[in-house]
Computed example of a mutant assay.
Amino acid sequence: MDNKASSSSSYTDFTPYELKDGEEYMNDAQVEHFRSILLNWKRSLMEEVDRTVHHMQDEAANFPDPTDRATQESEFSLELRTRDRERKLIRKIDSSLRRIDDHDFGFCESCGADIGIRRLEARPTAEMCVDCKSLEEIRERQLGR
């Protein structure tokens, strides 16, 4: 099994956006910056899905030894769990792309404040500002979720 799973959900191959004095938040240049990040990230994830399918087809063997068979099944199971997490991430990316199209991207869905360029570069699928997300996490811990 190749070790590309750890890098498959990476979207870090981009140049950070250079803010200009007096620049309007979520202007066309910023929106295109994030659209590009999201589309490249999605493409990377989809390529990883394809690699997994090919890998599983190429490596699938009916080992006579139960230990070898169990090892292969364990590796495949781990790959499939990783792909399932990435499938969910692709849905979040698609949701972020829809928010871009709807002109809602970059604004907190809870309070409407700017999420911030640097936070979005760190987490392009962020839907809340740091303050609202922190409050949500505190509530979740208190409720034991």
Score class of each variant (00 low, 15 high):
Q142M: 03
E48W: 01
D104L: 03
S77A: 07
Y25H: 15
D104S: 07
S10K: 03
E18H: 01
D101C: 10
T12L: 14
L97R: 05
R119Q: 11
A29M: 05
R145Q: 12
E47P: 02
M128Q: 06
R87H: 12
S77H: 06
S8Y: 03
E79D: 14
T82E: 10
L38G: 02
L89T: 15
R123K: 09
E109Y: 14
S6L: 03
V31M: 13
Q72D: 14
E23W: 06
V53M: 01
H54L: 07
A70H: 07
T71D: 06
D50H: 15
M46S: 03
R83L: 10
R139W: 00
E109D: 15
D2Q: 04
E32I: 02
E24T: 07
L97E: 05
I138M: 13
E86D: 09
E47N: 11
Y25S: 15
M26V: 00
Y11A: 04
S36A: 04
G106C: 13
G116S: 10
D114T: 15
T67L: 00
I37D: 00
C129D: 11
F107R: 12
M1F: 04
E18W: 00
F76L: 12
L89V: 09
H33L: 05
D13G: 04
S9F: 06
L143A: 10
T82M: 08
P66W: 02
T12P: 00
I93C: 07
T52A: 14
C111D: 14
R145G: 09
M128K: 01
G22S: 07
M1R: 02
F63E: 07
R141Q: 12
M46A: 05
D101S: 13
D94A: 15
I138G: 10
D50T: 15
E75L: 09
R81C: 08
D28S: 14
K42H: 07
S6A: 05
P66Q: 09
S36D: 09
R69I: 04
R139A: 07
H55A: 14
R85P: 13
D28G: 09
V53A: 03
S74L: 02
R145F: 08
V31F: 02
R139C: 02
N40W: 06
S134C: 01
P124R: 00
L89F: 12
H33D: 09
G106I: 07
T125E: 08
L143Q: 06
P64R: 05
L120I: 08
D101L: 11
C108R: 11
E48P: 00
K88P: 00
A70D: 08
E48V: 01
V130P: 01
E59S: 11
F105C: 13
T71Y: 00
T12A: 14
E109Q: 14
R145S: 13
V53D: 04
K4H: 07
I37V: 09
I117R: 12
D68P: 08
G112V: 13
D13E: 11
M128C: 03
L97D: 05
S8V: 14
Y25I: 15
E140L: 08
E79S: 11
E121D: 05
T52K: 08
F63H: 03
R119A: 12
T67F: 00
V49R: 06
F63S: 04
A61V: 11
A29K: 10
M46K: 03
